[in-house]
Write a protein that binds this DNA or RNA. Structure first.
Lengths: 362, 362
DNA sequence: TTGAAAGCGCTAACAA
DNA sequence: TTGTTAGCGCTTTCAA
């Protein structure tokens, strides 16, 4: 507070078109004409050169704020990003950024913890900045509950797309990964290899908000007649478990009466400490046990882990494309776009050992 | 006028203070007074309520662009971020964001590949957006060569801080990690444990642009009388090597005539495939060989890897603080701020095996 | 080919 | 307590 009061620096006015015009001995209009490619031809070359010289001398730089004020458009799309360090989100954003920039839009991000007040503030700030459209992530942390800012977004009638939205919305376009077929492909892959006892490592979402992919695991197991009672619940939200916790849990399950021959993780990282461990004390992968992750992270690539890719880049492209379409025609009906997953088969999956053939199917 | 309105594309003008004023039956000034906390008291409650009702009814939302145009300040800091998926950069940005928001500044990001045209465009765009200050990263990919936009930043006389700047700049404040003492702490740690043959895994920067931490490795080895001819050069820039490449190189070195008893990596990730491997074929960590990484990434935490932390959050705080200081006093002398590293000792380092004691010191 | 002038939405003297 | 008015920097008719 003291600082914001003290922060009263002398407002240094930057050079404007008026300054440039005066220096070049022309009118403000002429300067504007020179600056705008569409009107550049209206000005004689000699005059234009004088203007350009003045611009150079003064270090003039157009003020987009003023331009946007006149045009009523900013050629800018706002994006609220919950996580900066996430490969998955990064790839989505790259897809968005590249698609938008090809169409002359700049992508402006803000970052805020998912579910925080700052997140709502960020959306509001972007709206007040008059971005032409907004892209947001609705994160799992929000527990499938539509945040308030989703409503203000809708009332603002600004073209918007929500990515990763776990719940259905009839107010705003959503782009999501096809979690269900993604998980089915993982189960089916193991089933085809001969596995009949699969342990699922899931996150600790409350049962009523179970992510689609978890629900899909149980459904597919039921359809195939597989037991799905071997489970590890990973405390994502409560607290990050100590290194070694995950390994310990997996070893415990493997030593049980009905040991699984394969694990499926709700993401790749649940296998991290299991794989990083000095191998004396853990089974061989994939000879003793098969592993399937979810996310197709860099880690999966390094660890040679079979994993379900959500094709995040395509998610980004889909989101941006939808936005561009709605920018052209705001009356488009609300849509839910599902992006297909791909199973990336690597070295962590193989048929189960012969010895475990008999008592497998339940 | 009516004609030009009809001819125009359907630019939907959002409600403005004029609309609110008309609806509330007051003047534009009154609306402005109600909106601004500092002048709110000037307006009678009854009048204010009429204004607020009108705002609610119209779905009015202030236009920051216009406000900024008047004030000449945007209360916004622009940030160009080269990598979105990097934990390290994320932690820096969180530090920046939190510090700035405490002082009433919003952080607006743009993202662009380091060294690309888009990066220069992003800086220029932010400047044209009239952000009050700019923070950039100068990445190693730029090969220690000052990018052109650094110069335009300087000429714009906008308060700016460059983070991770590998070269010295007398034009702009820089905040960097103390790479030299960071690497020295890694070498010293191993030396104190008794290691006398250390293999360094470095990136493939050309010799003349060697990162400080690599230079520091060789210098410290020389000071301690350690051989430093065992090297693995990791092709960061050329192409990401296939999984297993790194492990293969490390095994090769370990089977040489003068095997090292420890490795230091120029980051944590060079050890990833070595650690993820089915352990039959690799030595035990730390019994057979010690490992020290650099970055203190999540991976290091999982893998129980000793690593040098650059304290990225502190880097962010330092950068933001410096920016705030310069915002108050633009005449501050240019500074290079070094943030201290911390050696995080974990389970990957231990004294070398007895058998290798004799021929160690060269 | 160039210039004058009217706004875009908002703020802040200055009046009333 | 409220209103009038003059800009902030730019674009864009319309006129010269």
């Amino acid at each position: 507070m003291a600082i914001s009061n003290a922060a009263k620096p002398p407002v240094r006015r930057l050079p404007s078109t008026v300054d440039v015009a005066r220096k070049a001995g022309v009118s403000q209009t002429t300067v504007s004409f020179v600056l705008n490619p569409k009107t550049r031809a209206k000005v004689a070359d000699a005059t234009a050169q004088k203007v350009l010289d003045a611009i150079e001398e003064l270090g003039y730089r157009p003020n987009i704020l003023a331009r946007s004020l006149v045009h009523g458009r900013t050629q800018t799309v706002g994006l609220v990003l919950p996580y900066l360090g996430s490969e998955y989100h990064a790839k989505i954003v790259y897809g968005i950024r590249d698609t938008l920039s090809q169409h002359g839009y700049q992508l402006l991000f803000m970052n805020a913890e998912p579910g925080s007040d700052a997140e709502a503030t960020a959306v509001e700030f972007l709206l007040q900045q008059r971005v032409d459209a907004v892209i947001c992530f609705v994160n799992a942390v929000t527990r499938n509950i539509a945040p308030d800012w989703l409503d203000s977004l809708w009332r603002a009638e600004v073209p918007a797309v929500v990515v990763d939205c776990p719940f259905y919305s009839d107010k705003v376009d959503t782009v999501v990964s096809d979690d269900i077929s993604g998980m089915r492909s993982a189960v089916d892959h193991l089933y085809a290899l001969g596995h009949r006892a699969i342990c699922y490592i899931m996150d600790d979402s409350p049962a009523e908000y179970l992510p689609l992919r978890s629900r899909a695991f149980f459904e597919r197991c039921a359809e195939l007649g597989l037991a799905s009672d071997q489970l590890i619940v990973y405390p994502t939200y409560a607290s990050t478990p100590r290194g070694g916790w995950q390994r310990h849990e997996m070893m415990r399950v493997l030593k049980s009466d009905t040991p699984p021959t394969a694990f499926i993780g709700f993401n790749d990282f649940v296998f991290q400490d299991f794989l990083a461990l000095g191998t004396e004390s853990r089974p061989n992968i994939p000879r003793d046990v098969s592993l399937v992750g979810y996310c197709d992270s860099d880690f999966a690539r390094w660890a040679n882990l079979t994993s379900v890719s959500q094709n995040p880049s395509e998610i980004g492209v889909a989101a941006a494309s939808r936005l561009l379409a709605r920018l052209v025609d705001p009356a488009l009906p609300v849509e839910r776009i599902e992006v297909q997953t791909s199973l990336i088969v690597r070295g962590s999956t193989t048929p189960p050992r012969e010895t475990q053939r008999e008592p497998a199917t339940n």
